[in-house]
Nucleic acid binder design. Structure first.
Lengths: 264, 264
DNA sequence: CAGTGGTCTAGACCACTAG
DNA sequence: TAGTGGTCTAGACCACTGA
């Protein structure tokens, strides 16, 4: 028996004990989605197990395969299950430390806007050997050359951020120091053919070091918002590592949470 | 003529100049999605205009309505268009300051986990008159009573956060001070029948005030990560206003960006 | 009223995974 | 080879919008 067993064998049957009210409250796919979400969150569908197949469960519930798909797709979009062709629909790890999920398109678009509405100043641009942690993040050999850039951004003349970026050499060579002074990095990377497929981001806070304080024009020790990011292409290959320090009085990181499908 | 005009009238025709290669690279819906996204971002489909209808555009491109729907749905999930029954598919404002989009389910689940894995201590719990800004946020009359709570969280004995919450009285009365000491607020609100439909969140940084420093056990002036949030039910009615201060050495805010559909 | 998006169905072919 | 999810089609009914 494989390491993943079907939840259907756990005693609930292919329908997992879900009852649908065909008419009144919610669309069928939403009723199914909600019922499955509850079962996953409270552990009735154990992590790593496979849900019944679309056909099987659709038949058990008396709905079409398309309607089942919609429910499964929404669970996948919310990160609760992973769907694999030929394998099935697997319940993912309970969301212990699972981070908030966001749309990669929004990240790219925000970068474009940032580049359009603010002025940048390039403080440093060089190819340097990757330190151990940068090499590990970018999945390259330690000491291999990486493009390292440091820049500050102004809005209306006032400095509000200090950014450092690390890009694998092969990708970095596709644009110049000049490009970096006029065009957002994200745009340069896309122009170079790198597509953004996913990214991990960590937000924190730190006291300004003397160097950061000098670059940003703030008092050493003042509180800064820190954003670290590692971006990957659709196949998971690292594209870019970033670290940005923001002056909190001049920049805040905004996010909007909405339902799985569609936003108003 | 209404304020929103159809993009189709702008000269590109119902197909908007999109050409599909039926076979090789990407699924049809993804090709259409990508083409439309580009046209929206570079302004060829002006903000506020209506895209051709599903039927019209599907016919023009030679695909079924279902395939068109999928492309439109994905645009809506990414926040680029808004779909209205009976009206059409409207191009939203160009993403000037549009914030990052995330799944509301993830927010709720993260709160549940936080409550399960950490210990809470209730420092204050009272009904107080709403200040002007709290009243504005919660959309109630200034001076109307709101439930205000202050609590700190520990992980392994170490304090890592100081949270303040404001809840409209009617909702707050559905649970007690005791409940608040043992159960995460999000869970209490859901139990009270409040459903989380959307939320706005702002992350920033600030220096610890003397009061915050005392509660958190850190030096006054040290850098703290600040998360402010306003949650609403599916109809847009405010449910909860929160402000949390984190000790950055003990907590970081993690997020994961992924493709519009499904995550690995 | 005509047109729109929201939902649901039945059926088909494919690529991929497992055994 | 059997079963899975991924894609696509054709057709239907509904609720809602706007004129």
């Amino acid at each position: 028996m494989s390491q993943a067993s079907r939840s259907g064998a756990a005693g609930l049957g292919a329908g997992l004990g879900i009852v649908l009210r065909p008419e009144h409250p919610l669309p069928l796919h939403a009723q199914i989605h909600r019922a499955l979400r509850r079962r996953i969150l409270d552990g009735r569908c154990p992590e790593g197990s496979l849900l019944p197949s679309e056909n099987e469960m659709g038949e058990a519930l008396g709905v079409s395969r398309i309607t089942m798909r919609r429910a499964f797709d929404d669970l996948a979009a919310a990160g609760l299950v992973r769907r694999s062709r030929g394998r099935g629909t697997e319940v993912l790890r309970r969301p212990e430390q699972r981070p908030v999920l966001a749309h990669i398109d929004g990240l790219v678009e925000a970068s474009l806007v940032m580049g359009r509405d603010t002025a940048v100043e390039l403080l440093d641009f060089a190819y340097i050997p990757a330190t151990a942690d940068i090499a590990a993040a970018l999945d390259i050999a330690p000491g291999a050359p990486v493009q390292h850039a440091v820049r500050i951004r102004r809005e209306g003349g006032d400095i509000f951020s200090l950014a450092r970026s690390w890009v694998p050499e092969a990708l970095g060579r596709s644009f110049s120091r000049e490009d970096m002074m006029h065009t957002p990095l994200v745009q340069l990377l896309e122009r170079a053919g790198a597509e953004f497929g996913s990214a991990e981001q960590v937000l924190g806070a730190e006291a300004a070091t003397p160097e950061a304080a000098r670059a940003l024009g703030v008092a050493p020790g003042s509180a800064l918002l820190r954003v670290r990011r590692l971006s990957r292409d659709p196949r998971g290959v690292p594209i870019e590592r970033m670290e940005v320090l923001y002056i909190p009085e001049r920049y805040e990181y905004r996010m909007q949470f909405g339902p799985v499908k569609s936003m108003g």
